[in-house]
Structure formats: C-alpha cells, structure tokens
Design a binder for these strands. Structure first.
Length: 489
DNA sequence: GCATGATCATGC
DNA sequence: GCATGATCATGC
C-alpha cells in the first residue's frame, strides 16, 4: 500500500520503481523545489552543505524520505532493493562513462569475512540495485543543476555474476590469508576492493587475520570499467555482441583467465603464417598483424571484447626475438607535464592506470622469418612493483620535470635537429621510462626558439617552455621478465 | 646490438 | 584530426 507521506510503498518493488523513474530528466534543484518546503535561503544553505556523495543523500532524504545510513542492509530492506545514485560523463565521442566506481559495502577487518557469497552483506547490496545515474556535466558550475539521466533496476546478468563470484572468492581468500595489505583493484575482473579514506595514514588499520599487519581500509565496488559497460550496454541499450564467453555455463567451473588461456592454447605452436592462412588474413607482417590474429583466435571483432571492456583488459601482442629479447618497449597514453607535477603518486593517472588495468599478453617467438605462438598470460603489475619500484621511478621523473629539466641541441649527419633531455634513460630504471609520444617532435624555448607543431605535439613545462609530449613506457627487459615462463617453463 | 629521440598506422 | 598502439632510424 502506498504511504501517503512518502508517495510510494517501500515494501513493493514496482511502487518504488514507478516512483523513482519520475526522477528521469529532472535536475536536483527541481527535485528539491518539488519535495522540500525550504525557502530559497535554506535551499542555498542545503546546497552548500553538499559534499561528495551528497547528491545521493539528497535523493534519499528529500525524495525517498528516509535517512541515509551506513547499515550493511539494503536501503529498502523489506524488498532487498539498494539505492545507488552515481554520476556519468559523456565523452567527446558521445559515449557514456561512469564517473566513479560504484562503492557497494565496506570490507570488514574487525571480524571474520563471509565465505558464502549468497549469504554475504555484499549480495544483499547487489541482488537488486536501483541505479540512479545523473550527468555530471562539468560545464555547469552548480551540481544541483545536474540532470538525472537514467533510473533503472539493475542486477548483474548471470555470466557477469559468475565472474563477480570469482572476484569475491579471490578477495576473501586473500583477506583470510592475512594479505589484505596486498589487495589491489587489478587483482580482479569486475568486483574490486577499492581503498576508502582520504589518505593512507588515516585509513590504515590492523587486519583481523594472520599477523594483523595494518592494511588500507577497503570496500567492495564495481569497477569503473564495469559500470561504464553497464551504462552503455545494459542501460543506454548499445548493442555490441563482441563477447568471448558465449554462455554462462562456460564460466561456472573455470576462471575467466582459464577460459581465454584455453582458447589460445588450441593455437599454441602455430606460426603467424599458418594462422593468417587459417583466418584468411593477408600475411604481410604489418604493425597490426599479431594483434589482429589474437582477436581472430579469441573470436572477437576487435580488442574491445565485452569482457575486456568490463574488466579493463588491454590486449598486447608481444614478439620475442631469438635472443629472448623484445625489440621495443611498450607505450602507454601520453601525459601532460603540468598535470603530473600536481599529482601525488598514490592518486596519479599512472598509478590508477596500472592499478585498474590488466594486460593480456599473447606471446609470439621468432624462428627465422616467422613468429610462433607460445602462449598467453593475463597480467597486472605486481603489488611490490607498483607500490615501490615504479613509485620511486615515477617520482624521480616527476621531480626532474618539475624542477630541473634541461635540453641539449643535437644535429645529425643529415642536418636534422633533435633535443636531448636529462630525464633518466631506460638503462638506469627497472620498470618504466619516459619517452616522446607525439606525431612529430616539437619544442618552444624561453629564448624564442621554436621547432615543429607546438600546439599539436608539445605541452608546457613548469618553466613555461614546451617539450614534445611524452608518455611512460614499460621497459622491454621488464616485460620479458613478466612472460619468460611461457617458453622457459 | 642497444639506447634513445622520433615517427608511423589504424580506427573512429 | 585525435587517441592509441606500435615501430623506425641514428649514433655509439
């Protein structure tokens, strides 16, 4: 029965949904005006109080008429519906992107964890979610003007749920082994253990298991990549049908990693030439050949397989030479100098990338003129590498970019000009180095000298000069160490 | 043969 | 025309 004061029946899913869906296309300000009896001053004061997460609380208190709480039951406990308000953004290409990971419930460090997924607090929070997605349009300077774009009842589809269960088991196993301090979002596919609390110092507590080593407080969350997929495909109705798992049955007994490795293993031992013939692709050794063969082996149109998008997995075809070396290092998206100097490592774009991204290495080994497929591996940067070595190297690059970058002008035998900088060379680092990553070299110096297309290919340093845009690269020697067990055994 | 600065290729 | 992933070319 409908509650006259609330406007809906909190014990009836249909009623909750019908009431909620009326939020679509309204701004938060419109909701406030409609539902509260505040005068305009009080409204302004309320708006000023909004903190992060405040927009969700606003809906809970003002629109649904209950106090926001942090109880580990679902918000509409009688019917097991959990309300989640979350932002999305619209990319330049017009695609939707989740603005945040969807935080579900805290991981308990004060007592035992729940082994059984279907009897866990987490399950109560995700079996039926009332998703309220609002457009975080950064061009608006008042977040009350954000508009609610989508209201949906959501539960992960069966094939997703199998992977989420595997993720849950992985996280729980690690916690029970007393290794909560080594948890990383990159460990898992769709369900992550994200950190909670502003800083590591304030939010590190002893864990319950093992030697009670202090660990960052963490919460179960759906990863940003998963929610971005949910938004585009389950909510906005974009079609894709580019999945590797064709039926949830495939993933019941095996992990996703096992599934993709088994697919690849059917082709191990075949050469690139044989595979080109088998898949009807011209054998021409061009840049994309081994990458394209990988997609054909996996039975996907391109690297944006549904599972890869959801779990933020990037396909990397790696060719190993006869001397067991990789010719090239591996590039990653470029960065801006003025961005990196503002970042702390822990919240940096670099750290976020390697914490949230997995690489699927598909490895080929050279034999004369051809490359033979030797195997594959789903990889993410190991905890120690990301938190210690890469941190040290990143901070050194940041320091030099910030305080003491210098250039030396070089002219080669053809009279071509280049500039040598004093950033550490790859020979002195273990994991990463910094290299140019642009269409052409471009510089502008404070003495007025200028080279190339500065607007397109360079960006500004703290001292006002411009250097060719750079990116982080994984050292080729480091990459070899991650995969050499595939042929050494 | 390696290190490094520079550049290419493809998809959207 | 850009974002992204991948490779080239020179000097030592």
């Amino acid at each position: 029965m409908e509650d006259k004061n609330l406007g809906y029946n909190p014990n009836d899913i249909d009623s909750i949904y019908k009431y909620a869906v009326q939020l679509e296309n309204k701004t938060f300000l419109e909701v406030l005006k409609e539902k509260s009896h505040l005068n305009s001053d009080a409204l302004t004061a309320y708006a000023n109080k909004l903190r992060k997460g405040g927009l969700g609380n606003l809906l809970e208190e003002v629109y649904f008429g209950y106090k926001a709480n942090s109880v580990q039951d679902a918000d509409f406990a009688e019917v097991g519906v959990e309300l989640k308000a979350s932002p999305y953004e619209v990319t330049k290409k017009g695609e939707l992107r989740a603005g945040e990971r969807l935080v579900l419930t805290m991981i308990n460090y004060n007592g035992p964890v729940e082994d059984d997924f279907y009897h866990s607090h987490l399950w109560k929070k995700i079996r039926l979610i009332l998703l309220i997605y609002y457009w975080r349009n950064k061009q608006l300077n008042d977040n009350l003007l954000y508009k609610i774009g989508f209201v949906r009842l959501f539960t992960p589809p069966e094939a997703d749920l199998e992977i989420i269960k595997q993720d849950y088991d992985y996280i729980v196993t690690k916690i029970k082994a007393g290794l909560a301090h080594e948890l990383s979002e990159g460990d898992t596919m769709y369900l992550g253990a994200c950190t909670k609390g502003a800083t590591a110092e304030k939010s590190t507590v002893p864990q319950y298991y093992g030697d009670k080593i202090p660990a960052r407080k963490r919460a179960f969350s759906f990863k940003n990549s998963y929610m971005t997929y949910v938004l585009n495909h389950y909510i906005a109705g974009k079609n894709s049908d580019n999945s590797i798992i064709k039926d949830a049955i495939q993933i019941k007994e095996k992990t996703f990693e096992d599934v993709i490795q088994e697919i690849v293993s059917d082709y191990v031992g075949k050469t690139d030439k044989e595979l080109c013939e088998k898949f009807g692709r011209e054998y021409n050794n061009n840049k994309s050949q081994w990458h394209e063969l990988t997609c054909k082996i996996l039975g996907i149109r391109d690297e944006h397989a549904d599972e890869f998008v959801k779990a933020n997995i990037k396909v990397k075809a790696v060719r190993v030479e006869e001397n067991e070396k990789i010719v090239e290092s591996m590039s990653f998206p470029p960065f801006k100098f003025l961005d990196i100097i503002k970042e702390e490592y822990e919240d940096s774009t670099f750290h976020e990338y390697f914490e949230e991204t997995k690489l699927f290495f598909v490895v080929w080994k050279r034999e004369g003129d051809i490359y033979r497929l030797v195997g594959s591996k789903l990889w993410h940067m190991p905890y120690q590498d990301l938190e210690i070595t890469a941190r040290r190297e990143w901070e050194e690059y940041k320091r030099i970019i910030q305080y003491e970058i210098t250039f030396e002008k070089c002219i080669d035998s053809n009279g071509k000009v280049s500039f040598k900088n004093n950033l550490p060379n790859k020979s002195v680092t273990e994991i990463i180095h910094v290299r140019p990553h642009a269409q052409k070299a471009a510089y502008r110096f404070n003495n007025g000298e200028e080279y190339g297309n500065v607007e397109r290919d360079a960006n500004m340093l703290p001292n006002g000069e411009y250097m060719t845009t750079q990116s982080f690269w994984l050292n080729n020697k480091y990459v070899v160490l991650q995969i050499d067990d595939l042929w050494k055994k």
